[in-house]
């Protein structure tokens, strides 16, 4: 994978406070290169999901965020949302349409694409996650693993450059987890994956960020961080 020196994600001094006064992010600085697959680990409440929700402007904290050279502002939020595919933790929340096809088509419809292009995008996305025969099915009738795949397809159809995944392997049985890991390994996108699944981190990610109480407390190559007993003990276990 060719890693250039331009930055796909750049965050400077990002702070965020929830309406209930809890400060969830305390000065995040972060650079992620194109094609880099980065894992975001840390205990519940460390701020991982909050950080992901900032990548496409769902939450707006203080600080600056650049996505693929575009500065995230109220004016560019539409553009940025086309670049960042956010996959939520619960596929039931992400798949809100009556059929798989309509759900995968949702993003392209809002991008204003012509019908033929929408159709082609949906086929492409479902193919990428191996769910090409499920277009007419209702999301309710899918297994958790299938829902996860479709949830990923719903953002792939927007042809984003970045995938931001929240707990992608939570609630999966071992076989579904295995096939999800293989899927993530095979996708070429820049990824930021918030997860507790260290096995997945080891296989998919080349870089690990450890978060604790709203700060990034460790950042390094996967093999280094996962062997660093002291860091893991302090922030994760």
């Amino acid at each position: 994978m060719a890693i250039t020196h331009e930055k796909m994600i750049e965050i400077q001094d990002l702070w965020f406070e929830y309406p209930n006064k809890r400060i969830a992010l305390k000065g995040i600085d972060l650079h992620i290169h194109p094609g880099e697959k980065t894992a975001l680990v840390g205990l519940n409440g460390a701020g991982k999901s909050t950080l992901l929700l900032h990548l496409n402007g769902i939450l707006n904290g203080h600080g600056t965020i650049w996505i693929d050279g575009i500065r995230l502002t109220a004016n560019t939020v539409g553009q940025v949302r086309a670049l960042v595919g956010l996959v939520f933790q619960s596929p039931d929340d992400q798949l809100f349409s009556p059929t798989v096809f309509e759900d995968v088509a949702y993003g392209p419809i809002y991008q204003g694409l012509p019908p033929e292009e929408i159709e082609a995008r949906v086929r492409m996305a479902l193919n990428m996650v191996g769910m090409q025969d499920y277009g007419d099915r209702a999301p309710y009738h899918l297994s958790v693993g299938e829902k996860k795949r479709v949830a990923i397809a719903t953002v792939l159809s927007m042809q984003p450059k970045i995938l931001a995944l929240d707990e992608p392997s939570a609630g999966l049985d071992p076989r579904a987890r295995r096939s999800l890991i293989n899927l993530l390994k095979g996708l070429p996108h820049t990824m930021l994956i918030a997860t507790h699944d260290l096995g997945l981190v080891e296989e998919v990610a080349s870089r690990v960020l450890v978060m604790s109480e709203g700060k990034i407390t460790a950042d390094g190559k996967t093999e280094h961080i996962l062997k660093d007993k002291e860091t893991l003990q302090k922030y994760l276990l």
């Binding site: 496409n56 595919g85 956010l86 939520f88 809100f96 809002y110 927007m158």
Partner: peptide
């Protein structure tokens, strides 16, 4: 709370308050 999460999911795929569907 679920509706808030769904709203986030819609928003991150471009929902802007107008309801659009495939013709």
């Amino acid at each position: 709370e679920r509706s808030e999460r769904i709203y986030n999911a819609m928003q991150s795929r471009g929902y802007d308050g107008k309801i659009r569907t495939l013709p």
